[in-house]
């Protein structure tokens, strides 16, 4: 006798095979899948304004170590940027910035933990809000920002922006020869990651 409606299994053996397949694969669909940081793709920039001359000061660090996971299209991860190679284009300024203000000997890394960044594969560039925690100068503070994410099959290009206040991280406001650096600093993090 044939059962009415629904999916029909021809035998007990078939039922067991399908159940076994579902029980083994369903949990893995929700499991975190690690993404790999594409070598040489990372660049972290900061931009601040020096007053009263409205002098734009920009610096960058190209090194980054990242542990990135993707779960159901949501990226989370930890991004560590070594500060010893932070470069603003002027040697003396770099020396002051790293030794006097950021104290990189004591706090060698800036660490950004991103909790949720929802991405769609095979989508054109779009802007997505994100939240995270930035640890800088030994102080961890929540940050919110926006990221432009472009997905292409297994590869994602991320361009994230957020703003911090130096004073909230216990960093003295840099002053030099009459120019005072702004408390507000824009941070821009770019990288590419893939699932290969």
């Amino acid at each position: 006798m044939k059962p009415k409606g629904g999916f029909m299994f021809r035998s007990q053996k078939s039922r067991i095979v399908v159940l076994a397949f579902l029980t083994t694969t369903l949990p893995t669909l929700a499991q975190a899948k690690p993404l790999r940081l594409v070598p040489d793709s990372a660049n972290t920039e900061f931009i601040g304004i020096g007053r009263p001359a409205l002098l734009k000061v920009k610096g960058q660090a190209k090194e980054m170590v990242a542990a990135i996971d993707m779960t159901d299209g949501t990226v989370s991860g930890e991004f560590k940027v070594p500060l010893k190679n932070l470069d603003s284009g002027i040697e003396l300024r770099d020396e002051h910035m790293k030794n006097k203000y950021l104290a990189v000997g004591q706090f060698p890394e800036a660490i950004l933990k991103v909790e949720s960044l929802k991405v769609d594969a095979n989508k054109d560039r779009k802007t997505i809000p994100f939240t995270g925690t930035l640890t800088l100068h030994g102080v961890a503070k929540p940050v919110t920002g926006e990221a432009q994410v472009e997905g292409r099959e297994t590869r994602y290009a991320v361009d994230a922006k957020f703003n911090i206040k130096l004073s909230e991280y216990g960093i003295d406001i840099p002053r030099y020869a009459g120019i005072t650096f702004a408390d507000n600093v824009d941070i821009n993090v770019r990288f590419e990651a893939d699932s290969k």
Binding site: L54, L55, K56, K58, G89
Partner: peptide, 9 residues
């Protein structure tokens, strides 16, 4: 070329 595009500094 060093990013100084304002005279005032």
């Amino acid at each position: 070329r060093h990013g100084y595009n304002t005279c005032m500094a």
